Simulated assay, not measured.
Amino acid sequence: MNATGIIVEYNPFHNGHLHHIKQSRNLTDADIVIAVMSGHFLQRGEPSFADKWLRTEMALQNGADIVVELPYAFATAPAVDFAKGGVALLAALKCRALAFGSEQGQIEPFLATYDAIEGDNATFQKNVQHAVKSGLSYPKALNSAYSQMTTKNNGSFADLTQPNNILGYHYVEQIFKQKSAMQAVTIPRIASGYHDHILAGTTIQSATGIREAVFDGSLQDVEAFMPASNFSLLQQATLMNWDVLYPTLRYMLLRLSPSEIAAHAEVTEGIEYLLQKAARTSDTFTQFMTRIKSKRYTWTRLQRMLTHIYTGFTKAQLIEASMPHYIRLLGMTENGQRYISAHKKEFTLPLVSRVAAFDDPMLSQDCKATDLYYLAQQRAPGEDFRRPPIRI
């Protein structure tokens, strides 16, 4: 059976994601589509809009055959490590292709970009570090170094100012660096951009726009932008954002000492003192973020930092999380179950369907993240131990 992999968040699953799954299956002639999906905290340092089991069910009802969880350490990481974890899991599951959406829409510029950067990586990294020292944020430093490289080379390169292109480049990079046999293919992103607000005249909207519309209005305002089954599922959900988690985060920041805050992943350069100062004077998450935002720290980097403080994820744990240790199964269709039965012995990582049967620090952090996500909903801990994989 020919399996194609996708790396997703589904925050929430919408019509654009449905298009992505259909095109991925068609372009690669796939019998199986396997989704590696983030759990309860996401790459931009946010709690997921809806819980991971509801998002798993959304995916399985709309074209995915298997959904596995991207461990917390990678799901909340910058693009290069987010990609590293996703590619490693798809390779372990024996996918023949990885299909990703991009603003670029063609794979050749990504391959040319990889060849150009790797061809003179020492100079590229030197230019990145020089830009960081000049005061640019790391993403802007990367773009500065990349612009210098592309102006000196002829050819068609990927536009790495676009969010999906950035992730796409790192998927391609990781396929090569991990020496995977997977083929990378890309599907043009259509109708709306990653950060776009709701746009008139189309039923394909960005997840960002959908979340904004729900929190500024109501769930009914976004019904046209997602499959009917998914809208029904969301009506049953408790929807989450940082406003819900902020009271607990604020308590943590005021309770911990500066040195305890500084032990968490991505907390650097003495910012722990600013975090505590802002927590004392900010009654809302927006106020808090406004007081800590600067040219040095992007909104996303700050949110990832706060996510790690909220979940207790430390620098030591981050160092240890070099590659995924397991495949955590969240759900499957009958077709997906047949693929697992036929290929399980070929998987290069252990398949975990029962959390209680697998002891691993990385998995423990995933379970901890779930418990703390549900804390804000006043739900009991231990959901990862009670929930079997979803079967559709």
Results as ranks from 00 to 15, higher is better:
178 Q>I: 10
328 R>F: 10
361 P>F: 00
22 K>P: 05
290 T>S: 10
9 E>M: 13
227 P>N: 14
88 A>G: 00
221 D>L: 08
308 H>P: 01
314 T>W: 04
140 K>E: 15
228 A>S: 14
271 I>V: 10
221 D>I: 06
7 I>Y: 06
291 R>H: 09
377 Q>E: 12
284 T>E: 07
33 V>R: 03
90 L>C: 08
15 N>S: 07
153 N>T: 07
234 L>I: 07
46 E>T: 13
16 G>S: 06
219 L>P: 06
137 S>D: 09
355 V>D: 09
161 T>H: 13
224 A>D: 13
360 D>W: 04
312 G>E: 05
120 D>E: 08
316 A>K: 07
227 P>Y: 05
225 F>V: 03
284 T>P: 00
146 Y>S: 13
101 G>L: 03
152 K>E: 14
92 A>T: 05
68 V>F: 02
391 R>F: 15
304 R>T: 13
223 E>F: 00
326 Y>S: 15
100 F>H: 07
261 I>F: 00
75 A>D: 07
198 I>Y: 05
250 R>C: 02
228 A>D: 15
254 L>T: 10
177 K>Y: 01
137 S>I: 08
269 E>S: 09
134 S>R: 15
26 N>S: 12
71 P>M: 00
18 L>W: 02
217 G>W: 14
348 T>F: 06
230 N>H: 02
387 R>F: 10
220 Q>S: 15
158 A>D: 13
225 F>Q: 02
348 T>K: 10
188 P>A: 15
347 F>V: 07
147 S>M: 12
118 E>W: 01
197 H>W: 02
380 A>L: 15
325 H>D: 14
242 W>P: 00
232 S>P: 00
244 V>K: 04
306 L>R: 03
55 R>E: 12
164 N>Q: 13
235 Q>K: 12
135 G>V: 11
287 Q>H: 15
102 S>N: 08
146 Y>A: 12
187 I>Q: 05
255 R>S: 09
105 G>E: 10
123 T>S: 12
229 S>Y: 11
116 A>P: 05
388 P>D: 04
160 L>I: 12
